[in-house]
Amino acid sequence: MGSEQKRFEEQKRRVYLFVLPVVAASLALNLLITDEIRPVQIINFILLVGIMICWGLLWTRFPLAVPEILILIISLIYLLAAILSSLFIDMLAQGEPRLGDFILYMPLVVVLGFLILERKQAVIACFTLLLFMIAPAIPVWGRLTDSQINSLITLYISLFVYTLLSFFLHILYRRRAEQRAIARFAYIDALTGAANRHRIDEWLAEKAERADQEGTEFSIILFDMDHFKSVNDEYGHKTGDDVLRQMADLVRSQLGPGDLFGRWGGEEFIIITDAELPDTMALAERLREAIGSHHFGKADKVTASFGVAGELPGDTPERLLNRADERMYHSKRTGRNRVTGETAEE
């Protein structure tokens, strides 16, 4: 879950780095096309400066929570200052019939609140903002014209609706994300990120069915880490887990686009490939050399034994796996750290 959270935060950082300059450009354009200096323009300028500071913090790899909270606080202050300026200066003093253009940014603030805060906190923040926007209008409500009152009511209803909509969308998004996570981990080995036994069985069934129907061929590589129990016994299971993760990353780096890789169980792994048997043997040999020459931290050097089997006419996944398993254990019996591509009868 920690790595998932880091990826999510990194995605958010990239979104902010793209969106903040767009918002800043919009504010700058608004400042340029306005002839007279008005309070709301001063507010826009302060907001522009704050956004650029936050953008700079994002580039310097500052902890994401700091610029996020800063952006949210600046946005809330902007909205409150803008409505006070629009209410008391534009409407009451100058007779403007409706609120200013600042209301266009209100949905962004609501979305930002739900993006940064927890769902309950975001709802509380949005309704608190609504109360702060209503409060200044209450003492002067009787001095407002019908069009001004309609404009304020529209603002309040819009904020209420945006909050409810964001609330329910957030629930739907979280449930969808949880469903995807469940589906993903139903097929993925949590330790190594490789496919799990359930997914491998599906792949083998699909490959075997396709071979029967279309006459295609495929091969499998079954391999097992040598003396892996001694790694766990000597260095602990944490080091053993780290070895398995490194090994899985190393194997993935050697595979082609169509090769399928999974954890068969324990320290045993499988590769399913559409390559012909000689090419599959060559791939197994490359993997053996890559694993054997890799430095696995505390465990230092670790080797693996390989068994390779190609699909035969009328084969079932069970027969194919049995042949690969026999050949892998032949590699174990005859010295380990080797590849066997033919069934041993010794």
Rank of each mutant, 00 (worst) to 15 (best):
F218D: 15
Y235A: 06
S219F: 03
A183Q: 12
K207R: 15
E214F: 11
Y187I: 02
D189L: 10
E202C: 07
A181S: 09
R199N: 03
R199C: 01
V231D: 05
T192L: 02
F185V: 07
G236R: 07
I182Q: 12
A183D: 11
T239N: 08
E209W: 03
L222P: 05
L204E: 08
H237D: 11
Q179I: 01
E209K: 07
H227Y: 09
A186N: 13
L204M: 15
I221D: 09
L204Y: 08
R197A: 02
D226P: 15
D233R: 03
F223E: 07
A181D: 06
K207V: 03
A181Y: 03
G193D: 04
I220C: 09
A190Q: 05
D201W: 04
D189Q: 09
D226L: 15
D226Y: 13
E202Q: 14
A181T: 08
A211Q: 10
R180Q: 14
A194H: 01
N232M: 12
A211F: 08
I221E: 11
N196E: 05
D226E: 15
I200Y: 00
N196G: 05
A177Y: 08
D201Q: 14
A183E: 15
N232T: 14
A208L: 02
N232R: 12
D233F: 09
G236L: 10
S230F: 04
Q179W: 01
D226T: 12
D224C: 01
G240C: 05
M225K: 00
R210Y: 03
I220K: 09
M225N: 05
Y187V: 02
W203A: 04
I182V: 13
L191T: 01
I188K: 08
F185W: 12
E202W: 10
A195E: 06
H198G: 04
G240W: 02
F185T: 13
G193C: 01
G240L: 05
